[in-house]
Design a protein around this nucleic acid. Structure first.
Lengths: 142, 142
DNA sequence: TATTGTTATACTCTATAACTATA
DNA sequence: TATAGTTATAGAGTATAACAATA
């Protein structure tokens, strides 16, 4: 019998290790969303919207990989909290453009600060490793 | 006025770049779960359970950071598909130990294969970068 | 009395299908 | 006829509170 185990490549190992970090982020995101009075999907939606570039509902649905009908309820929630506004499309009155409000911009930037907090495991790396990690990921992601 | 922008550190940049990879993983996990006839939470639960180490329902709830009452329904779904079994606790008959079935083990390992697939951005890195990435992450995560 | 897991209930997320209003 | 968004509906995930069985 052959008990040989498929040897994992370096990048497979790296990806698996990143998965550990990802796994730890899940409860953190749920907690952060709750602290801001948002559900996780509402947080993702607000994060996805660009205050400088209003987009139609359908564009948000595409970005979130979900159905238009779902975005309706999601935006209802954000709008009722004054974070986002529906604005009629200028050229096509069927479309609703999603505009992030002043309050939305503020919440959005506070969210960004919290979510940007580096996990302790990475923070303990040496300065050289931290730079190397950044440089490699930049090469990978452009 | 002070328009100075807080300079992000190397590790903050690295973490932000990893966030891009994680973000891309979301729809992939939803898709994979669907292909196996599982919902994403069911997939997480099955992934969390260790075939070699049965645990009480409450332990799974703790691992998933959710309520016991939620795990009841989650396990109902996995059990109805023959992936997991409830077994009475040996010493304390209040507890139900969660045992992964043979079929559950098979699905679990196929899931692991799919989820281990490396994102194309990382795959395009040079061999040296791939090794360096792995080594740095090993130093960070043990 | 305290604990494990279930049930009852309510709310949110999600998709499909039918619908409205525009085009 | 086609498209953007909504509404109706249904199913799953989630938590809280009340409950049963056991400790």
């Amino acid at each position: 019998m052959d008990f040989a185990v498929k040897r994992r490549t370096a990048v497979e190992d790296a990806w698996s290790l990143m998965g550990q970090l990802f796994w730890q982020m899940r409860p953190r995101m749920v907690r952060v969303a709750g602290e801001f009075g948002l559900s996780p999907p509402q947080l993702f939606a607000l994060k996805t919207l660009d205050p400088d570039d209003p987009v139609p509902m359908s564009a948000l649905a595409a970005a979130l990989h979900c159905d238009n009908s779902n975005v309706t309820g999601l935006v209802d929630g954000l709008e009722s909290q004054g974070l986002v506004e529906r604005r009629p499309g200028e050229h096509d009155r069927r479309v609703r453009m999603l505009v992030v409000t002043e309050r939305g911009i503020e919440v959005r930037s506070r969210l960004a600060e919290v979510m940007q907090e580096v996990p302790p495991e990475l923070a303990t790396l040496s300065a050289a490793d931290q730079r190397a990690l950044r440089d490699i990921l930049r090469r990978a992601l452009g």
